[in-house]
């Protein structure tokens, strides 16, 4: 992957230091982001960036092309919106519940899907995500085409009002940083090393004595849970859970974000999410052009820039400093 020793300053040599540097950098960037874009867009970039990091854990580090992550994002969004609206849970409990629901769904779908690899894996995840989609289309509690409007954002821990965008933004940033830290820690831990070993050569990982299915299931569930964290946060931020959250095009978008940013890079998914969300925002009024441009991005990045923006840049950087 990226990060050739020669390109890294000495103080960044250890993964721990690099993780910390990323976190500090992202926190600073996060603090400045609202100066550049308006708050809702900034929050969209954060929750979608977190979603993309979660997806990248599976696609980038384990090498499994999942095509159904909308199910985790969307289910968590619905569960959170439902509990906040109907049961009256506080936002943080709603988010926790949504995350837990996504983790549980991830464990089930993961258990089924990791029995296969490659295109079959993609197809199983897509098929099962469609089941979740059509379930939410029909279930009485999900309010059909309208989705669940949560009304006011409520108060965090029952105390801090999230009604104004500044406090909401801070909360979203904290959730984003926490989620990013978890993913990054998982990737840089011995656990993450086993994941990349499985990606590069699964039979070899098996012969080294690793129970690869357990690692895959764990990674899948973790990825689903963080995707759920992002989805539930989305429900609070936008005060809405709707069918767009579970639609397969959402699975395509998160995949595209990772592809744009750089598959298997730490920061790539966030860059990709920022590009994609800004583009959606700018093109919101042009309607159908968005889809065509998204398609063109897929084609362009697959054919011309397979290592993505971050992957390509760090490759260039590594070459220059060598």
């Amino acid at each position: 992957m990226s990060g050739k020793p020669s390109s890294t300053p000495a103080w960044l040599a250890s993964p721990r230091a690099r993780e910390l540097a990323y976190l500090v950098g992202l926190a600073a960037a996060g603090a400045l982001l609202p100066l550049v874009v308006y708050p809702t867009l900034a929050m969209k970039i954060l929750y979608f960036g977190l979603f993309a990091c979660a997806y990248n854990l599976l696609f980038g580090y384990l090498g499994l092309l999942a095509f159904g992550h909308a199910a985790f994002f969307g289910l968590a969004s619905y569960v959170c919106a439902h509990l906040v609206t109907v049961v009256g849970l506080t936002p943080e409990l709603g988010i926790l519940a949504g995350t837990a629901a996504a983790a549980a769904l991830g464990a089930v779908i993961g258990w089924l899907a990791i029995k296969r690899t490659g295109l079959y894996f993609a197809m199983i995840t897509l098929a099962l995500a469609q089941v979740v989609y059509f379930y939410l289309v029909q279930a009485p509690w999900s309010m059909g085409e309208d989705g669940i409007q949560t009304g006011p954002r409520g108060k965090l821990f029952g105390v801090i009002s999230l009604a104004d965008n500044t406090s909401m933004y801070v909360v979203t940033l904290v959730i984003f940083l926490a989620g990013f830290a978890i993913v990054n820690r998982a990737v840089n831990s011995p656990f993450g090393e086993v994941l990349t070993a499985i990606r590069d050569n699964e039979p070899r990982a098996v012969s080294l004595g690793y129970d690869t299915r357990r690692f895959k299931l764990l990674a899948f569930t973790l990825s689903a849970a963080i995707s759920g964290l992002a989805g539930a946060t989305k429900a609070i931020v936008l005060q809405l859970a709707n069918l767009g959250d579970v639609h397969f095009s959402m699975s395509g978008e998160v995949l595209l974000a990772v592809l744009i940013g750089g598959i298997g890079t730490a920061l790539g998914p966030i860059v990709g999410a920022a590009v994609l969300m800004t583009m959606f925002d700018a093109l919101a009024k042009t309607g159908a052009w968005v889809q065509a441009i998204q398609g063109a991005l897929f084609v362009g990045f697959v054919l011309l820039l397979r290592s993505g923006v971050v992957g390509t840049l760090s490759g260039l950087f590594a070459r220059k400093t060598r």
Binding site: G252, L259, A288, V290, Q291, G295, F298, V302
Partner: peptide, 20 residues
């Protein structure tokens, strides 16, 4: 995976353009 992603992109382009 890349063939899959490429053809998804092609489909989206065609569908999007005709939609426009």
């Amino acid at each position: 995976a890349y063939g899959f992603l490429l053809t998804i992109g092609l489909a989206m382009m065609v569908e999007g353009l005709l939609h426009v």
